[in-house]
Design a protein around this nucleic acid. Structure first.
Lengths: 138, 138
DNA sequence: CCGTATCCTCCACGATACTG
DNA sequence: CAGTATCGTGGAGGATACGG
């Protein structure tokens, strides 16, 4: 197969534009941020509730992620000076908008989940047509 | 301020649903994946062009990311056995769909960029109302 | 031109223990 | 109940050098 005639440089590309996406991912791409946002979007939620809700999270990471989300204005932390203390976390309007756009990502993932899995199997078989294909999750 | 009467448990929450989002982010949340997808969505592109296009990337990470994207069926790698060799990368339909949904994220980020910056400044001032606020990028 | 191979660094995250 | 403090680890990613 002969190389098709190139149509010159594809222009400098505004790859700079996606830096914005990267900034979002830096905030939301963490292991737990999404889970917390999803849980908190359903209404005010307490620390311990989150700990149970976001399965697998440690106390430490819960605290850290909550602080980051609060710092970025995605969560509001309300402390009621009762005893024992009660703290509730609420999503801001901004965060709820984000939650909506995350649904687009979810739908994409759901539509193509099978495609991706198939692509992987095909690729892995092509690389080493001998070794037994390990049972992959997902 | 008295704690409002809780409205019982907020239901077990389908936090499992967002695991799909996490799978997407595991693929696309890397430092370079987005830049590559954006660049390649504009049309077939060569290795060296990508190296210049996706600013700051190393040869190593370029190769690794390309292989992962190819493995997941987001990129197609075409080798022309000429000399010197020519290799071109093209996005699949799946990847172009993803690129579209990423625009939603971009728009969210652009709409709220200022909000987030302000939230950070406010938060950081609240934590230590004395130390001079370091000039933050973004 | 298009990669691989090695080595090294840094930090996100986990485990565990303690506290107002 | 809602956190902090401390230590330890794996893996993503950078620097550099070599190869078909």
């Amino acid at each position: 197969m002969a190389p098709p005639p190139r149509q010159e440089a594809p222009a400098p590309a505004d790859v700079t534009a996606d830096c914005t996406v990267r900034h979002v991912l830096d905030r939301v791409g963490g292991k737990w941020s999404i889970g917390i946002i999803v849980a908190a979007t359903r209404g005010p939620i307490r620390f311990t509730e989150l700990e149970r809700c976001v399965e697998g999270i440690s106390r430490r990471m819960l605290t850290l992620t909550l602080r980051n989300l609060e710092r970025d204005g995605l969560l509001i932390r309300t402390v009621y000076p009762t005893v024992p203390p009660r703290v509730e976390y609420t999503t801001t309007d901004m965060a709820r908008e984000l939650h909506d756009t995350l649904l687009a990502l979810t739908h994409w993932a759901e539509r193509h989940r099978a495609n991706i899995a198939a692509a992987r199997v095909a690729y892995d078989r092509g690389q080493h047509g001998d070794t037994p294909p390990e049972q992959e999750s997902c």
